[in-house]
């Protein structure tokens, strides 16, 4: 909005107040509709359950893990037994314990990275959509620049340059991942900013940040939530891919990706499946679960999409 619209009539304020009251009542039932729609998508319910279980495993890792993930036992590459349910790795560490601690890495990096890029993306998208004109063109060209780089390749190179660590991969995924969110937010802002309640906010002299974050943003949340959910799944794949290539979480810290990279030899693959199957399955199941949640959220939050996506 470049020029604020003036609303002076007192009746408009009453109308606005009534609208607010109405929307509050509607908000509650809307939430219930969303929850109902979400759980109607059966796989989404299962996915949510699996994802919450994964978070619980990550949080309670020290309690759940039978051993210290870095403790070295005298049998290495031991087959699964009652002492080591998933056997031991080539260094003699307990695979199950490393798997459990690996969940921490996946959840930390993915949630951290997505939080970083949602914050950047939302700010850029709000600014571009709200101010329009030059601000919009400049920001959208910057988005085009970022989107020209193949995501995985540029993250890989950035991490290789700044040095692999948990912090750096989280930042690299976060700093390079925001353009999609900013495009989504910009689109929502463009369709919201001419609504009466935004004009009313401007007329009442609210500060621009208040209008942006309290009036516009809450109404643009649905696509952000859906995209961020798929983003978490994607970030888990990115992190494990980086760690697999030796450019993610550094050993001895356990990550599902670096556990798999130890399995790149023919002997390990044929005779020690406990070394490569569990971390691979863990990544796959977690990512699948989060993708189901994302799909369920899309159905529940974006009614227009319900038509095409089951």
């Amino acid at each position: 909005m470049s020029e604020p619209t003036t609303l002076t009539s007192p009746s408009t304020q009453t109308a606005a107040a009534r609208a607010v009251v109405a929307s509050l009542g509607k908000e509650e039932s809307y939430l219930r509709t969303v929850v109902r729609r979400f759980f109607r998508h059966r796989l989404a319910g299962i996915g949510l359950f699996a994802f919450l279980a994964m978070i619980l495993v990550a949080v309670l890792a020290p309690l759940l893990a039978p051993h210290d993930p870095n403790q070295i036992f005298d049998q290495f590459q031991a087959a699964p037994s009652s002492a080591h349910l998933l056997g031991t790795d080539p260094v003699g560490r307990d695979v199950l314990s490393r798997l459990i601690y690996g969940a921490r890495v996946s959840i930390t990096v993915s949630v951290g990275a997505v939080s970083v890029y949602v914050i950047i993306g939302v700010c850029v998208g709000l600014a571009a959509g709200y101010y329009g004109k030059v601000v919009d063109s400049v920001l959208m060209r910057v988005v085009d620049v970022f989107m020209s780089f193949p995501y995985f390749m540029v993250i890989l190179i950035l991490v290789a340059v700044i040095g692999p660590s948990l912090m750096n991969i989280t930042l690299a995924i976060g700093v390079l991942g925001w353009p999609v969110i900013s495009r989504l937010v910009r689109g929502s802002v463009l369709s919201i900013k001419n609504q009466d309640y935004v004009k009313a906010g401007i007329a009442l002299g609210y500060s621009t940040p208040k209008i942006l974050f309290q009036h516009i943003l809450p109404n643009a949340l649905s696509p952000i939530i859906v995209n961020a959910t798929f983003g978490i799944a994607n970030a888990i794949i990115l992190e494990s891919g980086l760690s697999f290539l030796g450019l993610g979480v550094r050993p001895p810290a356990a990550s599902w990706g670096n556990m798999l990279s130890d399995a790149q030899s023919i002997t390990v693959m044929t005779s020690q499946p406990w070394l490569w199957l569990p971390p691979g399955i863990a990544i796959f199941v977690t990512v699948l679960a989060i993708n189901f949640v994302g799909d369920g959220l899309r159905d529940a939050l974006e009614s227009r999409e319900t038509k095409s996506h089951r």
Partner: peptide, 26 residues
């Protein structure tokens, strides 16, 4: 739709190792 979810959720390296295991090694 289920197959499509499988395709986007499985990491390249795990699928690659799995295929090598089945079709090349076994």
């Amino acid at each position: 739709v289920g197959g499509a979810f499988f395709g986007v959720s499985i990491p390249h390296f795990f699928l690659g190792l799995g295929l090598i295991y089945v079709f090349a090694l076994q």
